[in-house]
Design a binder for these strands. Sequence first.
DNA 1: CAGCCAGACTTACGTTGTAAGCGGGTGCTT
DNA 2: AAGCACCCGCTTACAACGTAAGTCTGGCTG
Lengths: 247, 247
Amino acid sequence: MADPPTRSEPTTPRKTSEPPGPRLSRALILDRAIRLIDAQGVTALTMRALGASLGVEAMSLYRYVNGREDLLEGVVEQLVGSIEVEPGERMEPNDGWQAFLQWFAHDVRRLALEHPAAFPLIATRHPAAPWLRPPLRSLRIVEAFLNGLRERGFTDHQAVTAYRSFSSFLLGHLLLECAMSCVGTSFAEEPVDEGNADLPNDDAQLDLTDYPTVARLQPQLTEDHTRAEFEEALEHLLVRMDLEMSQ
Amino acid sequence: MADPPTRSEPTTPRKTSEPPGPRLSRALILDRAIRLIDAQGVTALTMRALGASLGVEAMSLYRYVNGREDLLEGVVEQLVGSIEVEPGERMEPNDGWQAFLQWFAHDVRRLALEHPAAFPLIATRHPAAPWLRPPLRSLRIVEAFLNGLRERGFTDHQAVTAYRSFSSFLLGHLLLECAMSCVGTSFAEEPVDEGNADLPNDDAQLDLTDYPTVARLQPQLTEDHTRAEFEEALEHLLVRMDLEMSQ
DNA sequence: CAGCCAGACTTACGTTGTAAGCGGGTGCTT
DNA sequence: AAGCACCCGCTTACAACGTAAGTCTGGCTG
């Protein structure tokens, strides 16, 4: 606490000798933003907080980011960019499209589970083009997805149809899984009243007396089978696509 | 435009003779909030704007609404409350669970299409309980859903499983459909730069030169078949449930 | 008739996103 | 070596937002 009196710069904490390269970069900012979202939720990502987390003033970010909207857009782009459509060692095309889609689905799921607080952004931000459907909202991914299927015997029409089905499937299952994994975290809803019962206050434990069936089935409803549901639904989707292809 | 000079209260626009009942109510506020969201998007729903739209100061809303979070929660509750699990004239239980689920799915879809700007709220707000899955996030609905299926021959386990599958299905398909119907509307992204190309600016027309397959298939990708996709996927989900029940 | 209180208004504060301009170090030019 | 332009972060400032706290007013109740 006792500052040594040798301090020469009482006001400017900034070192006089700066490394020449910029201390900031778009990638660095986006990276930190993602980490902030993961840790404290999207609403905690303010320009000032992000700046502070980088040891920098809020306004400094505007050189690399075109406002908050663009920041969020960049976060989404960065996250979606981490999806690998195919595994690193190129799989044989005759591994079949089923293996291809399996791998792809699981990589998107990995992304969702690694960033459950950010996934709603990916899911609900307006895509750049109407046919860029969440969560597959990058040209690179759509291109690779369509090519991957065409290389494995899909017609154009079949590939496009598969793209549509897959988007819906991933969006529904993963968004739900993220919501469940965020329940109970710090940034779900922090303003917890203690016992204020003036307004219909539905937090704490719900009153199930009027809903006997829900009450009776609550144990089953509470069980978390999201993983198994995902696998099962994916399997069924593939079966369904198989049927449609051969018909 | 010409005010008659008989105006007696030049400063207070408020009438001296007030109707005794409150001019505001929670339902009225929520109703107006929904209308505002439908018209201009969620971000346009500010306390002040909502108050102004009701001819009232922002702070007056706080008597009926516990802050903005509670307002949004109320909006979601009101919207979800408009879902009818079964048609008005009680259908025969032997109409079969398929008809039951068909009707239910289409009523949730109606809600989504009537309020495309509000549906993301329903989809992504943290539910009160982990097993209250969006978009079926009300005890009333879950209770009616489970009962409806049990009356039509489902076991407890089957009903719970159906609830899970249905949530994912509705969430994925309807959220996607809402996103598509919101693209191009005023509240998608209004800060449209004209030609500023300093930062990677991905609005306007995307550059597809590096993505030949997407470019080639753009016509097919642009076609909107959301309605048919919904029906088809619903049909397949029902078939899949049928198989699982008989096995 | 006095008092009270529900219900809307007023004021005020902290936080947010962001426009506009500043400054000082770096590295290139002459 | 002197100048200069520019990159890059800082400072100041403002409008809009959510909301805490207090105020006024009219109708109802004791």
